[in-house]
């Protein structure tokens, strides 16, 4: 009886463990099944490099280049803003602040992570968008830049917490060794601690990047949603995620447009998967050493 019970529990635990993998595989298979249908009639090259996204024209054009560039502009902008801030913040929390200040800051960063993205998007829409418009004298504040700033806030918690972990993993003996040689705190951080934590820092940046590129609601609200190839960061853009969210409701199931959106989803999946894989590789390399 007891052995029977053990078996059942073991089986359940195994099944739950496998479930997560199976779900991922199922999702991927479903994406592939739906997305690849597009390429029966539309060429992959045109899909990846086409400059026009006119899904309801006749004949329709499913060039994703504007969407890919839109996502890239917004994501790179957000990364450029959040990485230096995140590094500085993680260094301050991990190495400089102490006692209550440190606890308050850590709680603050976690709280930032807990804000729903739609709330951030809304706040961005009413505060940031007019600000960007006036500050740079633009015809509209709904630009890639506004999206980048907003997304930088969303990437910060990920970047800061993972980076802080990476800094914590640097052995205390390195700090001691450096301080005992007469190095200042800043010299120790810059020359010893940051290089030692490099792979963790890169992983943090990658994961922040992954978090940002997959974000949908906030970017849809404040980037202007114009599916054209952006010439500067101060133009409206439309990201891959926003395209799917905005158009999915209006397509006929089984139409080319419907398949095209799934193909965009595959593209997004591949990009985030690659970024996460790289981040993992960097983290793993750290452990192996």
């Amino acid at each position: 009886m007891r052995r029977y019970y053990e078996r059942v529990v073991e089986g359940l635990v195994f099944a739950s463990g496998m479930a997560s993998i199976i779900f991922v595989i199922l999702i991927f298979v479903f994406l592939l099944k739906e997305g690849l249908m597009l390429f029966r009639e539309f060429s992959v090259i045109k899909f990846l490099l086409g400059k026009h996204w006119y899904p309801i024209s006749e004949p329709p054009q499913f060039g994703t280049l504007p969407l890919i560039l839109g996502s890239l502009w917004v994501t790179l902008g957000a990364t450029a803003i959040s990485v230096p801030l995140g590094i500085a913040c993680a260094i301050f929390i991990g190495e400089i602040a102490s006692g209550w200040l440190r606890e308050v800051l850590k709680a603050g960063v976690e709280l930032l992570a807990a804000i729903p993205s739609i709330v951030l998007g809304f706040i961005g829409l009413v505060t940031l968008v007019p600000l960007v418009k006036n500050m740079f004298g633009l015809s509209t504040g709904l630009t890639a830049f506004s999206g980048s700033v907003m997304l930088a806030f969303m990437a910060m918690p990920t970047i800061v917490s993972i980076m802080e972990d990476a800094l914590n993993l640097v052995p205390k003996t390195y700090r001691e060794g450096s301080i005992a040689m007469g190095a200042t705190k800043w010299q120790t951080i810059r020359r010893i601690i940051l290089p030692s934590a490099a792979s963790g820092i890169i992983a943090a940046v990658m994961l922040g990047f992954g978090r940002v590129i997959g974000e949908t609601m906030a970017v849809m609200m404040i980037t202007g949603n114009a599916a054209v190839i952006p010439k500067s960061i101060f133009q409206p853009v439309r990201t891959m995620t926003a395209t799917i969210a905005a158009e999915m409701g209006e397509t006929v199931q089984g139409s080319d447009h419907y398949f095209a959106l799934f193909a965009v989803a595959i593209l997004l999946f591949v990009i985030t998967f690659a970024v996460n894989f790289l981040a993992d590789w960097f983290l793993h390399r750290k452990k192996a050493r």
Partner: peptide
């Protein structure tokens, strides 16, 4: 302190070369 620690060096229990 910086001058002091330059003049008085310390070797630790576990070798702690920097990872460079």
């Amino acid at each position: 302190l910086i001058r002091l620690r330059k003049k008085v060096g310390m070797v630790f229990q576990r070798p702690n070369p920097f990872p460079i």
